[in-house]
Amino acid sequence: MTPLTETGWLGAAGALAAAPVIGFAFGWFLERGGLGSAPKLAGQFYLTDLTVFKVMFSALLTAMLGAFWLDRLGVLQLDLVYLPETFALPQAVGGALFGVGFLVAGLCPGTSCVAAATGRRDGLGVIVGMLIGVWLFNAAFVWVEPLYSATPMGSIRLTDLVDIPSGAGVAGVTALALIGFAVAGRIERADR
């Protein structure tokens, strides 16, 4: 039945039309949660404001549990949903670089757009910086390519790696996240 685009219910034009609608909702909730404000986001790294962790992982949990059960109930064909390919080394290095940039900028690509949309000039600055960063990557691609293409592992899930059923993986991640939320609450209370 779904994904609609993969089962013939929605064509390419429909998919493109859905994009801004989905984006609108995304931007809406990000702003609602306060993720359009760089000091709030940066507080994550100083353990004063754990909003980023709470929003990200409750979103992850919701989508993960929702996807699992919709798949189990036959509503969603999960293996028709695009699963990004894993390239372990460049994603580790890129992730680390991204984390440093995120700390300094205080906003990530999506939230920088929210910030800019709400009038924050620093949001605009991050956007400009990212366009430059992408351009630099393209310019340096010839040298970066060996790292970029290293360690391909295909479209692989955590549950494929350790060979457990996906439901067990879902349960494990949920447990970790809930523990994380409890710890986050403690940390924030202690900080007051």
Binding site: V100, G101, C108, V126, V128, M130, L131, L136
Partner: peptide, 8 residues
């Protein structure tokens, strides 16, 4: 920060 994020 944006430059580093874009690259990463």
């Amino acid at each position: 920060g944006g430059v580093v994020m874009g690259f990463g």
